[in-house]
Computed example of a mutant assay.
Amino acid sequence: MSFTTYGDYAARTRDSFDRQAAMRTLGIAITDVAPGRVWLTLPFRADLTQQHGFLHAAVITAAMDSAAGYAAYTLMPEDAGVLTAEFKSSFLAPARGSRFNVEARVLKPGRTLIFTEAVAHAIDGAAEREIARLTATMVVVQGRADVTG
């Protein structure tokens, strides 16, 4: 599927992502950007685990939501901002690994709503397994300085 992009969408996406204090705090980094797609990575951190020692679902969800939002953002006009309208996450396996990769893609772009999905994988040595999926609806926000400025 080919998508329409605006200006230097990749630099704009990376710049916006880098302004997220939450992603920095969680150690989540953007690794690649393409039209309608974003890849993130995060290392395992013991201080972000739940009671059984797995990376907490909230951390994985935050990464998938952010990836999905930025996949949508790559297709938005230069004066637009992105907000999440809704998402549903499903966990297929415990978040056990030395690092985690998240890949998000746009399923259906629109002028106001963009439908996306994200998939999280746990990496442990050479082994990689899918641990979670998220579907989300992103809103294209224009004309609001508190979102687009």
Rank of each mutant, 00 (worst) to 15 (best):
M1F: 14
F3D: 14
T5C: 03
Y6A: 08
Y6Q: 09
G7M: 11
G7Q: 09
D8L: 07
D8Y: 04
A10S: 05
A10V: 02
A11G: 05
A11K: 12
A11S: 14
A11E: 15
T13W: 04
R14F: 00
D15I: 05
D15N: 13
F17I: 15
D18G: 05
R19H: 13
Q20F: 10
Q20D: 10
A21C: 02
A21M: 11
G27L: 12
I28G: 03
A29L: 06
A29W: 01
A29H: 06
T31W: 00
T31R: 02
D32N: 14
V33D: 01
A34Q: 15
P35A: 05
P35N: 06
P35T: 09
G36K: 04
R37I: 13
R37P: 03
V38P: 00
W39I: 10
L40M: 13
L40Q: 06
L40P: 08
T41K: 01
L42S: 12
P43E: 13
P43T: 07
P43A: 14
A46P: 03
T49A: 02
Q50P: 09
Q51T: 14
Q51M: 11
H52A: 12
G53S: 06
G53K: 05
A57D: 13
I60A: 00
I60W: 01
A62K: 02
A63P: 12
M64S: 10
D65I: 11
S66Q: 05
G69K: 03
G69M: 03
A71S: 10
A71P: 07
A71E: 08
A71Q: 08
A72R: 03
Y73P: 11
L75R: 01
E78Q: 11
D79I: 02
V82L: 02
V82H: 02
L83A: 13
S89C: 13
S90L: 04
F91H: 10
F91N: 10
F91T: 12
P94I: 11
P94E: 10
A95C: 05
A95D: 08
A95T: 08
G97T: 11
R99M: 14
F100C: 10
N101P: 00
N101A: 13
E103G: 07
A104T: 15
R105N: 06
K108M: 08
L113I: 15
L113F: 14
I114G: 01
I114T: 15
F115W: 11
T116E: 04
V119F: 00
V119E: 10
A120L: 04
H121A: 10
H121F: 15
A122S: 12
I123Y: 01
A127L: 07
A127N: 06
A127M: 03
E128Y: 01
R129G: 11
E130S: 04
E130W: 01
E130G: 02
I131K: 06
A132Y: 02
A132V: 09
A132P: 06
R133C: 09
L134Q: 06
T135C: 00
A136T: 13
T137L: 07
T137M: 11
M138F: 02
M138Q: 15
V139K: 07
V140A: 00
V141A: 07
Q142R: 15
R144G: 00
A145G: 08
A145Q: 13
A145I: 09
V147T: 07
G149K: 05
